[in-house]
Amino acid sequence: MKTKFRNSERELKPATTFRPNVDPNVVAGVSPRSQFRHAIDRLAEILISGVAFFTIAVIFLIFVYVGKEALPLVWGTSDGATIASPFTGPFTWQPVSTVPKYNVFPLILGTLKVTLIAMLLGTPLALAAALYTAEFAPGRIREWIKPAIELLAGIPSVVLGSFALLVLASWVQDAFGIVYRLNALTAGIALALAIIPIIYTISEDALTAVPRLYREASLALGASKAQTAVRVVFPSAIPGIAAAIILGFGRAIGETMIVLMVSGNSAILSLDPALPVRTLSATIAAEMAEVVVGSGHYRILFFIGTLLFLITAVLNWVGDRFNRRLRERLFGSS
């Protein structure tokens, strides 16, 4: 009566080992044993679904527990920080002084400045490389390019950061004659290294997902290979390309170690890429270790964390929507 697989029986044996799953004593209906097995089965499904549900709980917990530490700002902390302090007062971030100044605009501007430089440098390179891999590269070479660029994604950001600090910073300083060794431009270039593999992988996937029929129809109509790639394949994959750029942007905003190491970390309100900058993420990383738990400064840092979480959550959601639209567009369903 037992239907039990032992490991050695994993390759399903032919019908000789088949035993009907019915108790011969029971003429009609389901045997108690079978009922029991199905109850176990049902229980397992509920448990596994429960574990899956837990991932939703985790996202929720992240928001709640990061937000919770910032919450006292709503009614104000004992040392005078409130929810308004990041947005009021002079445009200065000076949390450790007799009158602490928590204005986050220099940090936001710094984050945008570095991110923008990284996107401007990284996006064209990554997209062009994805187009080459998906459309022009001969089969064997293509099998090598993808894993190689994935290796770039595998380099820890602290390693990219130290490379930028030890080598890249001097190159950039000499090439552009910049006064400060650590500046927004260097940080942006280093950050581009981190987001190129992301934009590349997602957009390459989108381009390869375009059905072959599209290409063949275009070629049959007399278009060249480049015309097909640029005017047919690329536009068809546009939602996926958009997703790649948005998700790359989200990564760039949240990236911490690279900017912490090579941006110079001065909260200056300026658009000049040659000046040092300080980003939102680097501020948390640099100051959290030395802050008094429960102080206004501590709360403000958690507030910045909440802000980062919300920004990247929105970007992720939008990126996801675009990816789904790509699949709907190409295959008619998601």
């Binding site: 991932t55 527990y65 949240g254 959550a313 992720n316």
Partner: peptide
């Protein structure tokens, strides 16, 4: 949730 989790900045995990 899983897609979102993959995109949360690592520093936010530190705060969490």
């Amino acid at each position: 949730a899983v897609n979102n989790l993959a995109g949360v900045p690592s520093i936010v995990f530190g705060l969490f």
